[in-house]
Amino acid sequence: MLHDFTFHRPGTLPEALALLDEHGYDARPFAGGTALVVLMKQSLALPEHLVSLDGIEGMSEIRLDGEALHIGALVRHRDVETSPLVREAAPLLAETYGRVATVRIRNMATVGGGLAHADPAQDPPAALIALGASVRAVSSRGARTIAVEDLFFDYYESALEPDEIIESVAVPRPAPDARSVYLKFLPRTEDDYATVAVAAVGEVDDGVCTDVRVALIAAAPTPVRATEVERTLTGQPVTAEAIREAAEAVRDHVDPLDDFRGSADYKREMAVVFTRRALERTLLAEDA
């Protein structure tokens, strides 16, 4: 049994937003519950109002609209993983969502809830940032679009206001010849959080890297995009040596924490290794 709170079941998005508006810091939006319930069980979060988003229509769809995938915030991780549409349009996303925890958790956790939780070790932001995704955040004050790479600013702290929720995620469809990869370093068990993980999306034209995006999780207080690595490679001929050198720049983007998955120093070195490997897989794949 958890503490005493009021469980609201609004039927529409405006009703939900009005409830959040009304109760401010005392309320929390509630979707899959996998993160929030653990905090409530340990008395680390004691919201007086939970605003369940489950009954809200229109937030559970995945659709391909022009050049972007639109994923409703209430879509479960497992549904992103298994969606034929996602697999076809952005296989990296399906792969990355499929690496989160275990099937049981992926059946519960929602896309919006996972992002709002802002856990720097969660997998999806790596792929979302590498794919240039953004979220649509709504409150009773209006709607705004936030790039996923700008969504986080500290451990478990996102740019969302307390009265704001994620309505959907828009993922630009990668170019048809783009290659992508998600590498998750799990030296302990397969269900562990990553020691470090890297997603990369890249395009090569005639031996020259025309576009590349690299993002890491579990390497800093927030998911990070390795812009310096990208800058170094973009427009340059792709060689193993160029990749090796570029990957070194990731050191400046990461700021890992010592924990059971490795020391900060080790994680920094592994960020370099896995960035290099991710780049090799995306940019050098045909040569390999």
Binding site: L2, F7, G33, T34, V37, V38, S52, D54, R78, V103, R104, I105, N107, M108
Partner: peptide, 13 residues
């Protein structure tokens, strides 16, 4: 039909 963790699910869900 989907497996979930009943220790993390509210009865209300």
């Amino acid at each position: 039909g989907r497996m979930v963790a009943s220790c993390l699910a509210l009865a209300a869900q």
